[in-house]
Every structure is written in C-alpha cells, then in structure tokens.
Design a protein around this nucleic acid. Sequence first.
DNA 1: AGGACAAAAAATGAATGCAAAATAGGCGGC
DNA 2: GCCGCCTATTTTGCATTCATTTTTTGTCCT
Lengths: 245, 245
Amino acid sequence: MKSTIPDTGIPLAPPADNGGDRQESSLHGEILLRLRDYVVEGNIPDGARVPERQLCEMLGISRTPLREALKVLAAEGLIELLPNRGARVRQLSQRDLEELFDVMAGLESLAGRLACEAITDEEITAIEQLHYEMYGHYLHRDMHGYFQTNQRIHESIVAAARNETLKTAYTNFAGRIRRVRYSANFARKRQRWAEAMREHEAILDALRRRAGSELSDILFQHLRNKRVAAIEHLTEPQENAPASP
Amino acid sequence: MKSTIPDTGIPLAPPADNGGDRQESSLHGEILLRLRDYVVEGNIPDGARVPERQLCEMLGISRTPLREALKVLAAEGLIELLPNRGARVRQLSQRDLEELFDVMAGLESLAGRLACEAITDEEITAIEQLHYEMYGHYLHRDMHGYFQTNQRIHESIVAAARNETLKTAYTNFAGRIRRVRYSANFARKRQRWAEAMREHEAILDALRRRAGSELSDILFQHLRNKRVAAIEHLTEPQENAPASP
DNA sequence: AGGACAAAAAATGAATGCAAAATAGGCGGC
DNA sequence: GCCGCCTATTTTGCATTCATTTTTTGTCCT
C-alpha cells in the first residue's frame, strides 16, 4: 500500500484554520485552495494516486466538491486525470521541467519589459533594498535567505508589470515548479551564486534605465541559466544539504 | 428574460458529432470541450448567466458533469463563479483586454525566441509560403483570408518553439481573446495592413537569421501594435463591415 | 401609482445512491 | 514456484436527492 497519503497526522490544514489571509465562501473553493497547497507542498509522492475516498474523510466532505477541485487542479497541470482510473499527481519529466522553466523565463522577461513602462522610483528603490539584503545573504552563505529574497525580487518585478493576468499565470506556473522543489530537494548550486549576483546587478541596472527590451533579454537569460543549473542538479548527486526551514 | 441563451435551435453541437478530430472518453471532458467552444464562439452574451438547468437539458446530462466543466472554465478565465449566484460569462474590461494582449505578446515573443533555437529550414520555408499567401490576401483586400493566414503564421511560430507547455498556455489565452472577437465584431483596421505586412517581413528576416532576441523584440512590438489597433477599435465606430464567413 | 415586505418559486451547493469499470485476491494449471 | 484466469471488492463516474440561498412575484400599505 504505497499509494497511501503519508499519514503525518497533519489534517491537511486545520479545518477551522482559514489559511493565512485569503478567504473563500464556497466549499469547493476552500477545498481547492487546501488541496492545491497540499499537492504543491509535495505531500503526495510523484505519480501517486490521489485517493478520493481518503481525502474526503480527511477533509470531512463528500466527494462532489472534492472532485470539482480535482478537475481544476488537473486544468492547472498539477495532477492528471486518467479516465476511470482517477487522479494522479502529475509526474514531470525532465523535458516538462525544461519547458516550464522556459515559460517562466518568458513570463518574467515579459514582466520586466512591462515593468519598465510603469515602475515607480519607489518600487525600484524597494527592489534595490531587496537586492542588498540578498547580497548580505550571499556573503553569509545563507542559501535559504538568499533564495527567499531572490524570489521576492522576482515577484516584485512581476508586480511592477501591473498586469493581473500575467501575475496569475506566473503564480500558476511557479506552483508547478515549486512542487518539484519541495519534493525533489531542489537546492541551487553554490557555483551559480556569483554569476547570479552579477546578473541581478544587470537586471537592476536595466530596470533603473527603464530599458525594457534589454531587461527582457537579461531576465530571459538569467532564468535560462537557472534552468540549466536546476535541471543538471536533478540528475547529479546533491552538492549540499537542503536549507533548513 | 434577457438571460436566456439565444435559442438558435443549434443543439450545442450535435450530440453524436464528436467534433472535428479530437476525442474524449469521459463525459465531463466532452462537455468541457463543447461548452468551451460554445462560450468562446460567443453564444452566450457577455456577462450573462450560464443557466445550469437549461444547459443540462440541451446536453442531455445531469448537473454534476456540467458543474465540473464550469469549474474548469472558470479556472481558465472564460467564466466567473459567483458564490450562490451561479456562473456568468466573464465580461472583459478594456483593461483586461490590454492585459491579455500583452500576455499574448509575451508568449509569442517567447515562442519566437525559442523557435530560433529549434526551427528547421523546412519550417521556415513553410512559414515563408504562408507569408506569400498572406501577401496575396493583402493584395486582394481579402481580410478574412488575411486574418486566417496570419493566425496560421503565428501558430507555426509557436509550434516551432517545441514547447507544449507554452503552446497550451497560448491556446488558452487565445481562446479568451477569440471570444471577444466573435462577440464584439472585432475587425482589424485596413490602415494597419501595410504596417503589419512590413512587420511580418521583419519577423521572417529575424527568423531566417535565427536572431532570437531580436525576433523576440519584433514580435512583442508587432503584437503591441495589434493591441493598440484592436482596443481602439472597441470604442470607436466600425470602419468596415465584418468579413463574411 | 410606487415602494416595501413576504411568500412562492427557482436556482445553487453539497450529499447520497447506483451502475460500470478497474483493481485486488484467490484459484487452478503448467 | 510462477503465470494466467476468474471472482470479489474497491473505486470511479454520473444521476438523483436534499438543504439553502437567491430571485421572482404578489400583496399590502403609504
């Protein structure tokens, strides 16, 4: 019985919890949010079945809203629905990952271009601030902090693009990749750090000059390089222990 | 009773039809495909309710699979689900449209960049072929043919990017815009033709040279210009009659 | 006549029930 | 001992049913 959800005792987020800040009136919506997190956080192994019955008990609901949530998750690309065989967590091939990274690169590249049209000086200052913070993490070899701040920088750029449609798509794709990170112990390589820092300097520079097309290029390349490092990392043995939470 | 689906007698695609070429084993999948087309083709007015009961009768199914399909369409951004108030066709504001166009521009821009890495000479030849065909339509003032061929060119570029994830996202967003076209009589302006043709020449040129970053730029600008023309068109009176089908 | 309130009607959201398919388990054969 | 086949159980997919909420309609009052 390996297809059982790892019974960590975690009740799939406390029922009365209502998450961090979001709210959802409908039950299927609530279920969707919790189930999405549950999958993204890697609580179900790659390719494993998503047992309806068991989840219903866990969540204390009937199958109808759960199945509705599953359909949506399938549309989002997190799980796949095999006819008459239920839902499985989508197993991403290396090729899938490469594609995902490229799409993310495209979206961030677009975000950078759009951001140059609309970003305020204050937002740039805020990003510079994050950049220095990140540099501090870099100096202290704090991979976890570095990674978090790095992510906030990229999110800031996406936010500065002033495009909710883009932001939604970005978040969706980011979730798929995040799942891989969670479940596959997806640490970055130290050797990429210095290079990445340099690239970030170039990003900031282009952003300050509002050089949209240039920034677009730099961002794409930056993400491309990340992709190479990340994908390599999947096949090779791990270089360093995962950062502790 | 304006919220009634226009009763054109069309039974929402003949039940035994099975569409053009695709096939779907599950009922909700089948329903999803048909309903998506139905919405995209503008059969339900903007912002109108999507009456479950009526659709169930039309499709000869129960509410369960229909509701599952609706959840997915909502996730795709074609409709929106108001709590306890059912589904409505999503009404896109002008801002929404601008955002959509920009995201499409970003995706095509990405597609062009990736295509330069992988496209074969044969594919380029095929696109050149389409280009000449399109030029013919341009000379004959055949807007409908022009538009169709133009679309095929852009699809060819996306296909040449060799990225299924990108292609899926592209198709999704294209659907949302297509709905606006169908329902809002979204003709292009003649005055854009000459300019668009020139841009297409530049696209082909960059493609031949496999100049990824350059092509990326050109495609983004090309789509941006389209956006301006299209959005303007929404507020202004129509310049010319819609092409006959 | 117009508006506000209230009851009826309809629609939605979720739970349950049922047929069909898939999986698991047991049995016999080789 | 291992493989294939047949049956029992589980699981899936859809229909149906039930409880709320919303919307409509009718009536009364100002």
